[in-house]
Amino acid sequence: MPLRYLIKQILMPPGILLILLLLGFCLRRRYPRFSVTCFVLGFAGFWLLSLPLGVEWGARLLERQPALAQAQWAGLAQRAEAIVILGAGRERGDPAWDGDQPGLMAHERLRYAARLAKASGLPVLTSGGLHYGSPPSEAQIMAQSLSEDYQVTVRWQEGRSRTTWENARFSAALLREAGVRRVVLVTQAQHMPRALWSFEHNGLEVVPAPMGFIGVDNARPFAGWLPEAKAFWQSSQLLNEALGLLGYRLFYR
């Protein structure tokens, strides 16, 4: 796990961009042309990934599944047998809550899934393992939040998974034991292509319930051409999803 984490941080922004800038500085005398290339690539990468307009365009390529219309929520019980919510990290040891809390994206998923559960009456499964090996599991944290914040009881907790593929694999095993084959899958719209592919390849019929769309009009001054820190984070998430989807199709069959 530490090695995988280290490699990912090096190869993904901002790690790879910082390495390019460092190479551009260190090699400026010995290899001036190569150093200029590294610097330009590093600088351009930071700038492009920081543009809200780039986020908008990039998200539209990944957010292919349409949102469920609110008129469809009550009818989900005729199309599926359970709701599955995928974990999205946690905030560790928040003093205000005297413990770990779901991450920001996880909170968005929980709020949406709670609405779907109350409208449809479907049982809920939370999926997410230990965060860097430290308990409690994301599934447990999400289940507690659903109960305390939204008065929704979680029937199943899948607390072993570390990746989206394992979310699907372990959740499918739990649900098959309960006789469940059709699920409503809740996750961010940008993450839905990889999650949908994983769950379908683990034998489940899936009703996609994407939320958190960011491929919409950015509504920023100057049409989103000015760099923003939030846009850089969102662009990194989009890049991670694009590479993850490609990698899953290559390595998982």
Rank of each mutant, 00 (worst) to 15 (best):
E81F: 03
V180K: 05
A231T: 02
G15D: 10
S50Q: 05
K118W: 07
Y31A: 14
L174T: 06
E228W: 03
G133R: 05
A59H: 08
L18E: 04
L130Y: 09
G244M: 04
F34R: 13
G179H: 06
G159M: 05
P95N: 08
L22Q: 02
E205L: 11
H191R: 10
S161L: 10
P193L: 08
V36D: 08
G24K: 02
L122H: 03
F46H: 02
H131M: 10
L238S: 08
G244Q: 04
S171T: 14
Q70F: 08
P123C: 04
G93Y: 00
L3I: 15
R249D: 12
E108Y: 05
A209N: 02
L17I: 12
Q190L: 14
F43W: 14
V184H: 08
L68H: 02
L6I: 13
F46E: 01
A113W: 04
N218F: 03
G58S: 09
D149V: 11
F25L: 14
I85E: 01
E148A: 13
Q65G: 01
L130K: 10
L196Y: 15
G75E: 11
P66R: 15
A74H: 07
I16R: 08
A106M: 07
Q70N: 14
Y248S: 11
G247D: 01
A80Y: 01
S198E: 14
K230Y: 02
D98L: 14
F251H: 09
R115W: 04
L62H: 06
E56T: 13
S145D: 09
A139Y: 10
V40T: 11
L49P: 11
F222S: 04
D100Q: 04
A88V: 00
Y5Q: 13
A74D: 03
Q140Y: 14
L48T: 11
L76C: 05
G42M: 10
L48G: 07
L243Q: 09
L245N: 10
H201F: 06
G75V: 01
L68Y: 03
V184K: 03
R115N: 03
N240L: 13
R29F: 05
S35F: 11
R79E: 15
Q234W: 09
G24P: 00
L11P: 06
H201C: 06
P14C: 09
A173C: 00
A96M: 12
R115V: 09
W97M: 12
E91I: 15
H201R: 15
